[in-house]
Design a protein around this nucleic acid. Structure first.
Length: 557
RNA sequence: AGGGAUAUGGCCAAGUGGUAAGGCAUCUGGUUUUGAUCCAGUGUACCGCAGGUUCGAAUCCUGCUAUCCCUGCCA
């Protein structure tokens, strides 16, 4: 390894890989990302994707994308398409063709036959309930199935009949003969195959028996030459059957066979990560869909304005370990801000507009100003903004009288800088019957465009604006956390704890330079936050707030 | 009569017998036409608890405790 690896993050999996390479157990690294196509990918999957594909990149190995499609009842092509899209969007390229567990159905069948011939698998006619009773409990051993000692020849015939459609769903299953007294429940003669007369999105109606995850996964890994099979903590017990199967199958019982290692799944505060709950939110129409910008799905976060780079950076920041953890939103937000701060063009938008009239500015005059696209990066160029007698500013940027000496916004008799333009001073204002400010009248200092006052007076506050005649109406969607509690999954009814203010719609204005803002392009609306044009509603200007700017002022208030 | 895991500052997370990295958050200054960014600084961490081994332990041993996972013909 070169010293470049010193730059890489350190974690227990990398330590294992380094050892395996050093001892020549493996010559190269092969990983895989094995989603079941029964839902959309979320930020937790992104963690796994970054781990698996990242390892493959760093060790110059490969990573397969394999759809774990062993349960046709729950799976759908819509999901395989969305998953492919999400992985590519994140910036990863899978090794070779896309793989499906169903590619190997014939091999699985042969493996089952091998086990039957070795007396290590049998067809069992106990029904589901009986099987559960026979399994015993956590503290008591199970009982052996009466079908456990059927002769291999007979099992073979029975299994062939299963494949041929000779048994009804639930009538029988193929089980491995392992140990009904094992302390690992998954080793008490686990089911290998079940009968399902179900149309499969890849294999059509060719099969009516489908392998179980435990049987299919290890063999798929072995077929693909996976060296390090990474999964989450809840599969730790399953590692025993993973190993047992590969050790009892002649073709795969080799020193360089795959091994499974488990890391902890991502838990993020104020959201849920379980597919079941995500499905429920979509199904109950509590969100717009899988790509609702409040969802922790990759497609939702993409629509919200998260970038692939920020998600990859986030994955790196949280690291990999085996500790059950709950990650704060702050880490995610820091990652997206750090990315967008350097790449996002700046713009000005007013989201809760009030009129501002500059009384000493000539009526009917409009001036053009070249404003930097990014104040810290001149190479990003300039954009044209306008200045005139009538402008819009944000309601929150004006008060009749400053509450204290630290107040930095506009007030009567107080001076403030209009961002990219002149210094103005509040003179008087008008309000409606309800006491809401409607118009603020100001004077401006014509000698302060691009420079400070010659007399040396200090004007600290800066507020943003949009010139009224050129302003473009726009909608802003301001998102907040989806739930009101840090760990909604722990609630009896997680939907009861949804944040009713997770979406705020605001009608305001953007500068004319935003007229043709491309979808998903990140902008920083100065002093407001990072926004991007919605990728679904494109016939008008709709902007999603990705994340606000860090706001020390708001924290202190 | 169970078994499998995990416990390092508020949140992540390095560390694998030689005297506790880093990130996020926090707080304090400085710069600033974004109360942003940036820069500099900021933490007495009984390394879950209690014993033990050792010149020396977060790291080894013993015993506890807490939390998570396992009894789908789901993955």
């Amino acid at each position: 390894m070169t010293n470049e690896t010193a730059e890489r993050p350190v974690n227990f999996i990398r330590n294992i890989i380094n050892d395996d390479l050093a001892t020549q157990k493996h010559q190269q690294v092969k990983t895989r990302f094995p989603p079941e196509p029964n839902g959309y990918l979320h930020i937790g999957h992104a963690k796994s994707i970054c781990l698996n594909f990242g390892l493959a990149e760093d060790y110059q190995g490969g990573c397969n994308l394999r759809f774990d499609d062993t349960n046709p009842a729950k799976e759908d092509m819509e999901y395989v398409e969305s998953i492919k899209r999400d992985v590519e969007w994140l910036g990863f390229q899978w090794d070779g063709e896309i793989k499906y567990s169903s590619n190997y159905f014939e091999t699985f069948y042969d493996c089952a036959v091998e086990l039957i011939n070795k007396g290590l698998a049998y067809v069992c006619f106990l029904n589901a309930e009986e099987t559960r009773e026979y399994r015993g409990s956590l503290k008591e051993p199970g009982k052996e199935s009466p079908f456990r000692n059927t002769a291999p020849q007979e099992n073979l015939a029975l299994f062939e009949k299963m494949r041929a459609g000779g048994f009804k769903e639930g009538e029988c299953v193929l089980r491995a003969k392992i140990d009904m007294a094992s302390s690992f429940m998954c080793m008490r003669d686990p089911t290998l195959y079940r009968v399902r007369f179900e149309h499969h999105h890849q294999t059509g109606d060719k099969w009516c028996i489908y392998p179980m995850y435990d049987f299919a996964h290890c063999i798929s890994d072995a077929i693909e030459g996976v060296t390090h099979s990474l999964c989450t903590l809840e599969f730790q017990d399953n590692r025993r059957i993973y190993d047992w199967l590969l050790e009892h199958l002649d073709a795969f019982n080799r020193p360089d066979r795959p091994h499974q290692y488990e890391f902890s799944r991502l838990n993020l505060e104020y959201t849920v990560m379980s597919k079941r709950m995500l499905h429920q939110l979509v199904g109950d129409k509590l969100v717009e869909g899988w790509d609702d910008p409040r969802m922790p799905t990759i497609s939702g976060m993409r629509r919200r304005g998260y970038t692939p780079a920020s998600l990859r950076d986030f994955a790196e920041r949280i690291g990999i370990s085996k500790v059950d953890s709950m990650t704060e939103m702050g880490i995610l937000e820091a990652a997206i801000r750090d990315d967008l701060n350097v790449v996002a063009p700046r713009t000005m938008a007013v989201m809760d507009p009030i009129k501002l009239v500059i009384e000493n500015y000539p009526e009917g005059e409009l001036e053009s100003i070249q404003a930097p696209v990014h104040p810290q990066n001149e190479e990003m160029g300039k954009r044209e903004i306008f200045f005139g007698r009538e402008l819009y500013i944000d309601r929150a940027d004006f008060m009749e009288t400053a509450p204290n000496g630290k107040y930095m916004r506009l007030a009567i008799n107080k001076e403030v800088r209009l961002r990219n333009a002149y210094i103005i001073k509040g003179e008087r204002f008008e309000e409606d019957a309800d006491g809401n400010v409607t118009t603020v009248y100001c004077s401006y200092d014509p000698e302060t465009l691009g420079k400070n006052p010659a007399d040396g007076r200090k004007v600290k506050g800066v507020i943003h604006f949009v010139e009224a005649s050129k302003a473009l109406p726009a909608e802003f969607r301001v998102y907040d956390r989806l739930f009101t509690v840090a760990n909604p999954a722990k609630e009896d009814d997680f939907e009861a704890v949804l944040n009713s203010e997770s979406l705020l719609l605001k009608q305001g204005f953007v500068e004319p330079s935003m007229a043709n803002a491309p979808v998903e392009q990140a902008y920083q609306c100065e002093r407001e936050g990072y926004f991007c044009r919605d990728n679904k509603i494109t016939d008008r200007l709709v902007f999603n707030r990705t994340v606000g700017l860090r706001d020390v002022w708001a924290q202190k208030k």
